[in-house]
């Protein structure tokens, strides 16, 4: 009996916490996204009248409407922000896949003694403050910054390039901040590849490049997919990077949500933006999970 109770506690405590502080908040957000802003405390209407019984619920439900979603659909600002969030995230994910693959490949081909050190070197920046690492780029990218200074000294450019406060600045920041998230899953897959496969490819006359593209890369694709998902989702909702490196013209949903909440104090509209953001990222997750399940089934069918 006490064993069953213990099992229930072990499984149930984290579950209860996450339901209460992760799932229920989404339900609350969804509800408030159908409310209207109000100069009250809390700053939205309607508020559920728990004493009102069935009648109170009816009034509550009748006061909800789609006006926030209409606003999002009609005002070009939100559509542009959604599209450019997806665009930035997709472009940065592609850059990450292109830069992360050779990095992870090199790590996996390093000697066994070096591999743990290289992994640690990739992880350490991830442990240091995100805000500070993004902030560090301001000094490098700004017009009188180090990068422009170096390029001008080398005579490559005559006047400073406007990299800070531009889309390029955002892409550099995204690539920089998320590189470990792409490299580590890729490395995990590549370091487990059987070296005999590459030897076989070499024996059959494939050069290094051919072996990489026909053997390593196809087998590493699950790692690329995992890394891409791990980067893409948080990047769509990124706030700090567009805020510090993107200037006032960079539209991203995370930033729109932030300003609706903190500057305009329109909680219902901010909630509707959160729901929109969530819808945008659920699609890729579902696709990935399905691919994952299919692969697992295939692996189990082969393995046992």
């Amino acid at each position: 009996m006490s064993g069953r109770l213990a099992r229930l506690l072990v499984r149930g405590l984290p579950l209860a916490w996450l339901v209460l502080f992760f799932l229920v908040p989404f339900a609350v957000t969804l509800k408030i996204s159908f409310s209207s802003p109000a100069t009250a405390q809390p700053p939205y209407l309607p508020v559920i009248d728990w004493q009102g019984g069935l009648e109170g619920w009816r009034e509550f439900l009748e006061a909800l409407d789609f006006q926030n979603y209409r606003m999002i659909a009609e005002d070009a600002l939100y559509r542009d922000a959604a599209l450019s969030s997806l665009g930035y995230a997709a472009l940065a994910t592609a850059i990450l896949a292109l830069t992360g693959t050779p990095t992870a490949y090199a790590m996996a081909r390093a000697s066994k003694r070096w591999q743990p050190i290289l992994v640690a070197l990739v992880i350490v920046p991830f442990w240091t403050s995100f805000l500070i690492r993004v902030y560090a780029w301001i000094a490098i990218l700004k017009p009188e910054g180090l990068l422009n200074g170096a390029l001008m000294k080398l005579g490559l450019i005559a006047s400073p390039l406007p990299i800070l406060d531009s889309p390029t600045g955002v892409l550099i920041g995204l690539t920089y901040a998320y590189l470990p998230f792409m490299v580590l899953p890729l490395y995990a897959v590549m370091s487990r590849l059987d070296p005999a496969l590459l030897e076989a490819a070499a024996d059959l006359g494939a050069g290094r490049a051919r072996a990489f593209f026909t053997v390593t890369l196809p087998l590493a694709l699950p790692g690329v997919a995992a890394g891409a998902l791990l980067c893409f989702i948080p990047m769509v909702g990124e706030f700090i990077i567009p805020d510090l490196l993107g200037g006032s013209d960079t539209l991203m949903l995370g930033r729109v949500l932030w300003s609706e909440f903190f500057s305009n104090r329109d909680w219902p509209l901010a909630s509707a933006v959160a729901v929109l953001l969530l819808i945008l990222i659920v699609g890729p997750v579902v696709l990935f999970r399905e691919a994952e399940l299919r692969r697992e089934e295939a692996a189990e069918g082969r393995g046992r």
Partner: peptide, 12 residues
């Protein structure tokens, strides 16, 4: 995304 977690927890 942190903005979603943050906003929804605040609303709760």
């Amino acid at each position: 995304p942190e903005v979603i977690t943050g906003l929804s927890l605040l609303l709760l």
